[in-house]
Design a binder for these strands. Structure first.
Length: 261
DNA sequence: CATCAACCTGATCA
DNA sequence: ATGATCAGGTTGA
């Protein structure tokens, strides 16, 4: 399976991977995982091959996807040629949704800090690393959540944990919905608007046509494609230009911006 | 339906 | 050093 670990794990779609020398270290479920880039692939320690293949969406035919979006637009074709191994991840439903509630109105660095602090505060100690907490773990210890410095995301985060824990909100039931249905249901959660819904739709539910528009994508859509307007205007323009794999085009655009910055 | 202030923290600028 | 300014999505008026 073709994958560029630096691009895939460092581009901001997931927030718990850290590069230590040549080694990418992270946590999947209750497993501490280490990944090392090798020619034409990577080495994985700490979890099963099935698990990591699922996480990397190994069923996505990356060359075919890159070719398809490259055929739609010359600018993205250049980005794809420069970064052919950027994959979209399949993240855990609960962890991804909860994380992106925290990601609201925060930059990548601050998101990572908030996520790490809730893991340390509430997650299971795996020895030098902590799991992302379950809803139960958060509710059991939420007296000390103020120390995580989540700001106004704190109430939304706890409220979401409550609704998932008591069954008011069933994340798994969204898996059978199409992209639009999935986004519609996600937006019912307090703290999830159109951008976070798109992120969750693509990074957890695998709707590759989602085209999340954050501040940086918004700027580059204006500069490169002359597209501006409401969230829906810009996001649907992304889908119109790039088609069913618009999310991959979005990641290429986003990744190219993070290299510049 | 569109606009816009308020929300919280951390980084960066004077 | 200290205060002003800015970056970043969602909500509700």
């Amino acid at each position: 399976m073709e994958v560029d670990l630096d691009a895939t794990l460092g581009c901001g779609q997931a927030h718990r991977w850290k590069k230590d020398g040549d080694l990418w270290k992270g946590v999947l479920g209750n497993d501490k995982v280490e990944l090392l880039q090798r020619d034409g692939g990577f080495l994985c320690e700490g979890c099963s091959e099935e698990r990591i293949k699922r996480y990397f969406r190994s069923e996505d035919d990356l060359p075919a996807i890159m070719e398809e979006i490259s055929g739609k637009d010359a600018y993205v074709a250049g980005l794809a040629a420069a970064c052919p191994g950027l994959r979209i991840l399949r993240q855990d439903l609960w962890e991804c949704t909860a994380t992106y509630i925290l990601a609201t109105n925060a930059n990548v660095k601050r998101i990572a800090k908030m996520v790490e602090s809730v893991c340390v505060m509430f997650g299971t100690d795996l020895g030098g690393a902590y799991s992302f907490p379950t809803p139960r773990q958060i509710l059991d210890g939420c007296g000390s959540i103020g120390e995580c410095r989540l700001g106004y995301r704190e109430g939304r985060f706890v409220e979401f944990a409550e609704k998932v824990e008591n069954g008011t909100y069933d994340l798994a039931s969204l898996e059978e919905l199409d992209y639009e249905g999935c986004v519609k249901e996600l937006k019912k959660i307090n703290g999830i608007g159109p951008k976070v819904a798109d992120c969750t739709a693509i990074f957890a539910y695998g709707h590759l046509e989602a085209f999340p528009v954050d501040a940086r994508i918004s700027r580059s859509m204006k500069e490169v494609y002359g597209v501006e307007g409401s969230y829906e205007d810009v996001s649907s323009a992304g889908r119109r230009i790039f088609g069913r794999y618009a999310g991959y085009a979005q990641e290429l655009l986003y990744h190219s911006l993070s290299i510049i910055l």
